[in-house]
Design a protein around this nucleic acid. Structure first.
Length: 265
DNA sequence: AATATTGTTCAGCA
DNA sequence: GTGCTGAACAATAT
């Protein structure tokens, strides 16, 4: 589930496994996995180098080399990392792989091939090119900053939270969760929100993302009454007597409670 | 067998 | 310029 909390767990995983080891080879098994760089160019950038640090921003993960350049990863819908030694431990859908001097490999596993690998010399430039908005967690934004970011935004509440150009990192699952816990319908017009709604949304956004990060983005570790355990039409709402319904926004399924998330106030 | 899926991007349209 | 919709990308899982 590669939204912000998931990417943060990948960051820790990579930090714990792939740091400070000399890279001996780089492989790409899928035509579409590399974006904006060829395999031969990437090899020149990585072989013989080490990863110095790993950082996250929005749904991107960045591995900084000792040349102060960055391998950037976006995990699409089904991507994750797998550090392993023996072939038997390799994931089923490894699209990209880094080999280390110690005989271990870091695999980029991505069943649906919607993830991409980039390389950049400059993070700021990369953010700009990707039109990446502010990461609410990594920048630890306060309410004032949040208000500035969403000032004047139109469209549905859900689409504003999903829009990576406004704030980076929140996807379908966590935007639904934030709205569910804030008791706001996903199709409610953003511009009609009152100050108290905005305050609640901000608070829930911070709380939910931080809790998910603390729990390593493991759904089983998150509270039983979170919507993410009930993403199916007809399920009983875990916090009231309502029923979970589904509506399509921006081509994605939004789940919400038909009783405590009202479209008309 | 039909339908749904954690993401991004782009064309077309109002 | 804004926002919405659908399609494309791709491969399962239920």
């Amino acid at each position: 589930m590669p939204e912000l909390p998931d990417v943060e767990s990948f960051r820790r995983y990579m930090e714990a496994s792939a740091l400070k080891k000399t890279i001996t080879d780089v492989k790409a098994n899928s035509k579409s996995v590399l974006a904006g760089i060829t395999l031969s160019a990437l090899k020149k950038k990585l072989i013989g180098k080490k990863i110095k640090s790993v950082s996250g921003y929005g749904k991107f993960l960045f591995a900084q080399t000792n040349d102060n350049e960055y391998l950037a990863m976006h995990f699409g819908m089904t991507g994750f990392l797998n550090y392993y030694k023996n072939k038997e431990e390799a994931g089923k859908y490894i699209r990209f792989q880094i080999d280390f001097e110690n005989g271990y490999h870091l695999g980029f596993d991505d069943r649906r091939k919607l993830g991409h690998i980039y390389f950049t010399e400059n993070l700021k430039e990369f953010f700009k090119k990707k039109k990446l908005g502010v990461d609410p967690i990594r920048e630890n934004i306060d309410y004032k900053r949040f208000k500035e970011l969403v000032e004047g935004k139109k469209g549905t509440v859900k689409s504003v939270f999903m829009n990576q150009e406004i704030m980076a990192g929140i996807g379908n699952i966590y935007s639904d969760e934030i709205l569910f816990q804030s008791k706001i319908h996903p199709e409610y017009p953003f511009e009609k929100l009152e100050e108290k709604d905005l305050k609640l949304l901000f608070k829930k956004m911070k709380n939910i993302l931080q809790l998910a990060i603390d729990k390593d983005a493991e759904p089983d570790e998150l509270p039983e009454n979170f919507l993410l355990h009930y993403r199916k039409p007809g399920k009983d709402c875990p916090v009231c007597s309502g029923t979970i319904e589904r509506v399509t926004i921006g081509g994605r399924s939004s789940y919400f409670c038909n009783k405590h998330q009202r479209l008309v106030k």
